[in-house]
Write a protein that binds this DNA or RNA. Structure first.
Lengths: 131, 131
DNA sequence: ATTATATTTGACTAATCAGTCAAAAACTAT
DNA sequence: ATAGTTTTTGACTGATTAGTCAAATATAAT
């Protein structure tokens, strides 16, 4: 019953993910998310409750669906750098991700993604650092 | 001539560094910096010009004085995740740091610091991940 | 068609943000 | 002491922030 949702939650979470990846958590404003999704604030809030809720749902969805994708890794790093220390729920999510991570060298995976986000690496040097 | 500075720039930069490390760049407010340093906004602005200036000076000082300390690495990661993509000056600074980095495995160094910042690692497991 | 329920709409709010600036204070040189 | 210079002070500003909510709209069940 009731009015139908005008959007698919998982599609919106994909868009939300790219915005958080681009600007970080604190660097992303609700207006950024409103513009990117095409939804209005009220719709976003009724679907996710808060900006934090939007981030958690985006992170969870990404972890569930594509554990080692570039977007997932970047969201994980943003969560670790900006949120985990003060947010138990997010820290638990990240612990789970860490435990189940398929990569043989998570630290290097994270470090590579940090370097990539910074834009200081040219394409050719993305895999190893001559040292 | 003129009134003497009531503080030593390098001491204030140490304090500023710890605040940015704790809250990130976007997550740090001027009020946070005012409280932590004990200086007033006007003094901070006349010394550093802007919040970005405070971060750049803190990062530069740390890179110059203790290239591979924990605080330096964390500031580097914050700069890489939040600022480098859109700020040429900061990206140049980071490129220089990367080029001159003494570590044999920068990616792992960065990844370890990200994990540490998140608080998901217990002390015993900080150096290797059983996998 | 009426009732009940779920979603959308977007103007609104209170709080917080980075940054400014004129006046006061503290210093040096003469 | 006076003039010249620099720093400090903190109230102020306009912009932006996350979040709210009553009204409008759209759907399903009866």
């Amino acid at each position: 019953m009731g009015r139908k949702k005008s959007f698919q939650q998982s599609e919106i979470l994909k868009i939300i993910s790219t915005v958080f990846v681009k600007y970080g958590f604190e660097g992303t404003s609700l207006d950024d998310l409103v513009k990117a999704t095409g939804l209005l604030r009220g719709s976003l809030y009724s679907a996710f409750g808060s900006k934090r809720g939007m981030f958690i749902d985006a992170l969870s969805e990404n972890i569930k669906q594509q554990k080692d994708s570039e977007i997932t890794i970047t969201l994980v790093i943003i969560a670790m750098m900006e949120l985990a220390a003060k947010d138990n729920t997010i820290r638990r999510l990240l612990k789970q991700w860490y435990k189940e991570s398929a990569s043989s060298n998570v630290k290097e995976l994270l470090g590579r993604a940090v370097l990539k986000q910074s834009g200081i690496l040219k394409e050719e040097e993305k895999n190893s650092h001559g040292k």
